[in-house]
Amino acid sequence: MNHLQLLLPGSLFWQPEFPMCVTREREFFSLAMHVHDFIEINYVAEGKGFHYIGEERLQVQRGDLFIIPIGTAHVYRPVSPHAAHELIVYNCLFSTELLHKLLKAHALPAELEQMLTEGNGEYRYFKDSQHEFRPLMEQLFKEHSLRLSGYEPVLCGLLLQLLIGLYRCEKQVHRPGASFHQLQNVFEYMAKHYAEPISLEHLAGMIPISVSYLQRLFKRTTGQSITEYLQNLRIEKSCELLQRSPLSVRDIASQIGYKDLKFFHALFKKKTGFSPYQYRKKANL
Results as ranks from 00 to 15, higher is better:
Gln182Glu: 00
Glu170Pro: 01
His106Ile: 12
Pro109Lys: 07
Glu97Ser: 08
Asn185Leu: 15
Thr96Asn: 10
Phe133Glu: 02
Val154Glu: 00
Gly119Asn: 15
Cys156Trp: 06
Leu148Met: 09
Pro78His: 07
Glu118Arg: 12
Arg147Ser: 13
Gln139Ala: 08
Leu103Asn: 06
Leu99Ile: 03
Gly165Phe: 12
Pro176Asp: 06
Gln130Ala: 13
Pro135Tyr: 03
Leu158Glu: 04
Phe141Glu: 04
Gln172Gly: 12
Gln182His: 11
Tyr151Thr: 07
Leu158Arg: 05
Lys101Ile: 00
Asp128Ala: 11
Cys169Asn: 14
Arg124Ala: 01
Tyr76Leu: 10
Cys92Ile: 01
Gln172His: 14
Leu108Ala: 09
Leu148Thr: 09
Leu99Gln: 03
Leu160Gly: 08
Pro109His: 07
Pro135Cys: 12
Leu162His: 06
Met137Trp: 05
Val173Lys: 14
Thr72Leu: 09
Gln130Leu: 15
Leu103Glu: 11
Ala73Ile: 06
His100Tyr: 00
Gly177Met: 06
Ala105Gln: 15
Tyr151Glu: 07
Val173Phe: 12
Gln172Asp: 00
Val186Trp: 01
Leu140Arg: 04
Tyr90Phe: 14
Glu170Lys: 03
Phe94Glu: 06
Cys169Val: 00
Tyr125Ala: 04
Gln182Trp: 00
Pro176Gly: 01
His100Glu: 09
Leu136Arg: 08
Arg124Phe: 00
Arg77Lys: 15
Pro78Gln: 06
Leu163Lys: 04
Ala73Cys: 14
Leu116Cys: 01
Pro78Leu: 07
Ile88His: 01
Ala84Asn: 13
Lys127Cys: 03
Pro81His: 06
Gly165Pro: 08
Asn185Met: 15
Glu97Asp: 15
Phe126Gly: 04
Glu118Ala: 14
Leu183Met: 03
Val173Trp: 13
Ser179Thr: 09
Gln172Cys: 08
Leu162Lys: 05
Arg134Cys: 10
Ala178Pro: 07
Glu138Asp: 07
Ser95Asp: 08
Pro81Gly: 00
Tyr167Phe: 15
Lys142Tyr: 14
Ser179Ile: 08
Leu93Tyr: 01
Glu152Arg: 14
Leu158Lys: 08
Glu143Asn: 08
Arg147Leu: 08
Ala107Asn: 11
Asp128Val: 04
His131Gly: 00
Glu132Pro: 05
Pro153Phe: 11
Ser179Gly: 00
Leu160Ile: 10
His144Pro: 07
Phe94Ser: 12
Glu111Ser: 13
Glu86Ala: 11
Leu140Ser: 03
Pro109Tyr: 02
His131Ser: 08
Leu87Gly: 05
Gln139Cys: 04
Ala73Leu: 05
Arg124Ser: 10
Arg175Val: 00
Glu113Ile: 02
Gln184Pro: 02
Glu122Pro: 02
Lys142Thr: 15
Thr96Pro: 04
Asn91Arg: 15
Gly71Asp: 10
His131Phe: 10
Ser129Tyr: 12
Thr117Asp: 07
Glu86Tyr: 06
Ser80Leu: 13
Leu102Lys: 07
Ile164Trp: 05
His144Ile: 05
Glu170Gly: 06
